Amino acid sequence: MASQGTKRSYEQMETDGERQNATEIRASVGKMIDGIGRFYIQMCTELKLSDYEGRLIQNSLTIERMVLSAFDERRNKYLEEHPSAGKDPKKTGGPIYKRVDRKWMRELVLYDKEEIRRIWRQANNGDDATAGLTHMMIWHSNLNDTTYQRTRALVRTGMDPRMCSLMQGSTLPRRSGAAGAAVKGVGTMVMELIRMIKRGINDRNFWRGENGRKTRSAYERMCNILKGKFQTAAQRAMMDQVRESRNPGNAEIEDLIFLARSALILRGSVAHKSCLPACVYGPAVASGYDFEKEGYSLVGIDPFKLLQNSQVYSLIRPNENPAHKSQLVWMACNSAAFEDLRVLSFIRGTKVSPRGKLSTRGVQIASNENMDAMESSTLELRSRYWAIRTRSGGNTNQQRASAGQISVQPAFSVQRNLPFDKPTIMAAFTGNTEGRTSDMRAEIIRMMEGAKPEEMSFQGRGVFELSDERAANPIVPSFDMSNEGSYFFGDNAEEYDN
């Protein structure tokens, strides 16, 4: 993207840094990872977990959730003011799984939030270390993106479920800051804005008074975040219109849905970061690795190297396929839920299948599930090659597409044709070009129609051997075009429920 120079890199967003050079960025990201790792080690000690239990991804998720809940100030305040039966607002906890007599047992633990905050700050040299908290939120978000298709949420806001490739980060909490905003897809931002506008339509006082002023500035800020994701002048001009509207209503909703559809071809720039579970960072720190000293990046080879040398386990339900569970977590670790499966298959070195073909449910185990038949197995999170994460949407291309997802959002900077089903997408653009945004709409449609099938995206960008740390010898991959490109292809993934 041309304006790259004016933006802070995501590592800076990730670490609240002012302008830093590459070495400083690597050190501050490393410091953040160190903090998460030290916190995780301490929690495993508190909970008396064995090494194996500490490497269980379900335990990692519970521990991450506990610290996120302990620092969720708004919710904590709300819980104190609106006490609900049987919930102690000062405590947080969740299921911890232990191996007892050759069987997995679930144990519900409860801790004072104050105590968890103390352990977290102690692991982070006394700081609140917001960057580390956001990092864990993005890992949870990436896992949700890989596990669930947001059909219901899309339909509720009037969008087409086939636009799911635009929904990265749709389950990120509001408090995820600049680093969170960077990884949100165009569809996620559109959905947040539509929800806001709908509230304004239904509630006369939404934009009024002292609160209304705050609401208005939040609305304009979200519009600017979305505008910054678009790469064409016409899309940005249309966002200006939406932002400046005196009284946002149905016309703005129409414009936003139009823009979301246009992003299936004229893709937005959305950041991709490899955020790993805390149970990967903990053992690495415990083994003596100093992330701050060595430096770390979320968008280069580092996460690949770390996963190459990590042992992570997962509980497996009786009829689940461990290899499929591994694929789910591998995609989440690489922030690749909406990437082209052919690119992923090449990088991973084994075939990556669409969601609907995987015999696996989510990673988390519900409290009512029976533990008797639970097994555990090693997650295979290694890769054959590594590639640089991208934040450009890439230019655009036609490809055989599917009944489910009709476009992709690249996660890796790797040369390819970008699949999208042009006739299906263009069919949504018939007729409606009147109104105050008509010239911009016409211009956007013209650009979409001009998108050429034979153009290559990320020209000359390749993948790298894991021994090639400096990215000196790019390998331009070859793809098996007979395979499906979309992950949520004609899909039956479970729906995400809060």
Rank of each mutant, 00 (worst) to 15 (best):
A2G: 14
A2M: 10
A2K: 10
G5F: 09
G5N: 12
Y10L: 00
F39H: 06
M43F: 09
C44E: 09
L49N: 04
E53R: 13
L68Q: 06
L68C: 06
L79F: 10
H82M: 04
A85Q: 00
K90R: 15
K91Y: 07
G93D: 11
G94I: 10
K98V: 01
R99Y: 01
W104P: 03
D112N: 03
K113V: 10
E115V: 14
R118A: 00
N125E: 05
G132R: 04
G132H: 11
G132E: 08
H140E: 11
T146C: 07
Y148L: 11
Y148F: 05
Q149P: 14
L154R: 07
V155G: 03
T157Y: 02
D160E: 07
G169C: 06
G169D: 04
G187T: 08
I194K: 13
R199S: 02
N202I: 15
D203C: 10
W207Y: 15
N211A: 13
E254F: 12
S262W: 10
S269F: 10
V270F: 08
V285D: 07
S287T: 07
S287C: 14
E292W: 07
Y296R: 12
P303C: 07
K305C: 12
L307P: 13
Q308C: 01
I316C: 00
P318E: 01
N319T: 08
H324L: 05
S326R: 07
L328S: 02
L328T: 02
C333H: 08
S335L: 04
V343L: 12
L344G: 07
V352H: 10
P354Q: 05
S359L: 02
S359Q: 15
T360H: 12
G362D: 06
V363W: 09
V363T: 14
I365A: 08
D372R: 10
N397V: 01
S402P: 14
S407W: 10
V414G: 03
V414H: 06
Q415R: 15
R416D: 08
K422Y: 13
P423T: 02
R436V: 13
M440I: 06
E449C: 04
E455C: 15
E455L: 15
F458C: 04
Q459H: 02
Q459A: 00
V463C: 04
F479H: 04
Y487I: 07
F489A: 10
N498I: 04
